[in-house]
Amino acid sequence: MTMPFYVPPEQLMKDRAEFAQKGIAKGRSIVAAEYADGVVMLAENSSRALNKIGELYDQMAFAGVGKYNEFEALRVAGIRHADLKGYSYGRADVAAKSLANAYSQTLGAIFTESVKPYEIEILIVEIGPSPDDTRLFRVRYDGTLVDEARFCAIGGQEDELSAQLENRYQAGSSLNDAIKFTAETFEAVEDKSIGPEDWEAAVLDRTNGRRMFRRLSADEITAARS
């Protein structure tokens, strides 16, 4: 019988974290920013079919960066969780906090127990009847759960994007203005202009009725930025 080599737990966790971070750093970023009627989510993504942003429930959206297959599995699991809860109890009982906790537990367990940690980072966005009810929960590859406010950037260039957004972000702006300053932030960080077809954008908007999630078309982005 061969004995496995002893690896100190600190080293094990560090190696895993480094591995996950390296994977995430390769991926493109996503920015979510509050505006007057909700939250806009913007990502650079030239694929029409493989989305990074999706609807979770009436007032909740999901955004993921990193390995597509991994965050897609989490998106599907989140929709299942939310729909099961909403069907068994009531629609108002589905809340981002409990879902973010479930994500956090699941990712924490995957980080420590599985052969390879997930190379992803996700964002759960929730809006409510008033701007004070907006929640931006960000869950890291190791299950760390952070509650952000106003805006949030995840993915490879999150630090640069956050630094730029700090200057450009305007509270209570219109949707058009919010699209403008988030798109400009991306372009400033990447130091190039990004065509309307290369954006993936969606909003959670209080004025949309029961299902508040809506994708924005390339035309809408062009119109907002002109």
Binding site: A73, L74, A77, G78, R80, H81, L84, K85, S88, Y89, A102, Y103, Q105, T106
Partner: peptide, 13 residues
Amino acid sequence: SLEVPSGLPLNAH
């Protein structure tokens, strides 16, 4: 039954 599973149904079969 009204019991909702507490974990995320990640590997729902």
